[in-house]
């Protein structure tokens, strides 16, 4: 189920935040969206999730215009994880994960059990969300998305509040999903994580796509210099590269 967008233009508060961006993403891979602050990363992800109506262009899900899909159909296919979710009511982890089944309108007990297992939350299922650590809460929110068994996972900075160990654990969970055929798109600030864990990187700057390709090409020294305005060097071998600034 390909997720593609052609000449996609998004406008928020009368400002063009995404300007004629085109790409076609394949399932079974991890795509990272990178760029400096205000580049339009979160807006592009929201556009891909069907949460922003395109001012021009369109988003296609397997050839079908996303805007024409019923919200429930869209919600079943695309699992969107926003940045910094606050859970309004102090429910248990299991009840939080159940929310992922809302678009399916079923109990989805097996899917919920699989999601809890994938996020390593089985022992925390009855714990109230308010008692979870930052890492546990991030896993619970991801499990909510996994419970919906979407064809695409679209996550906005899912690793931002996590320590190194939890970042790698979550990336392993997402890689396992990609290996099962799910498409994964992540907004990432940490370029080293994008370099080492993504299959493809889209780099945005001021709403425009300035690089698109394998991490080694899309996050080259030149792209980083133009996009972030810093000189940098990649050290180490592919798969375990470290970024040195200056």
């Amino acid at each position: 189920m390909t997720l593609s967008f052609a000449s996609l233009t998004l406008v928020r508060s009368r400002k063009t935040v995404i300007d004629a961006v085109s790409a076609s993403l394949e399932p079974g891979t991890i795509t990272a969206i990178c760029g400096p602050n205000g580049a339009g990363k979160s807006s592009l992800l929201m556009g891909m999730a069907g949460l922003l109506r395109p001012a021009a262009g369109k988003v296609d899900l397997d050839g079908e215009d996303l805007a024409r899909l019923h919200p429930r159909q869209r919600a079943c296919a695309l699992g969107y994880l926003p940045q910094a979710v606050e859970v309004a009511w102090d429910m248990s982890v299991a009840n939080l994960v159940v929310l992922g089944r809302l678009p399916h309108r079923d109990s989805g007990e097996e899917a919920i059990a699989r999601a809890l297992a994938a996020a390593d939350l089985e022992e925390l299922a009855t714990r109230p969300v308010s008692t979870l650590s930052g890492g546990e809460k991030a896993r619970a929110l991801l499990a909510r998305v996994l419970a919906g068994e979407p064809r695409w996972i679209l996550a906005d900075e899912p690793l931002a509040a996590l320590d190194l160990g939890h970042q790698l654990a979550m990336l392993a969970t997402l890689r396992a999903q990609a290996d099962c055929g799910t498409g994964v798109v992540l907004v990432l600030h940490d370029l080293a994580l994008a370099m080492n864990h993504a299959d493809r990187v889209l780099v945005l700057r001021e709403g425009r796509l300035v690089a698109d390709g394998a991490p080694e090409q899309a996050l080259s020294r030149e792209v980083i210099a133009n996009g972030w305005g810093v000189t940098s060097n990649w050290l180490g071998e592919p798969g375990s590269r470290a970024l040195v600034i200056g």
Partner: peptide, 20 residues
């Protein structure tokens, strides 16, 4: 009820869950 449940996660996440 279902839409109110979805709103537990905020307006944006609720819309992504099909809340209209």
């Amino acid at each position: 009820g279902r839409s109110l449940d979805a709103l537990t996660l905020g307006e944006r996440a609720a819309r992504s869950l099909g809340m209209e």
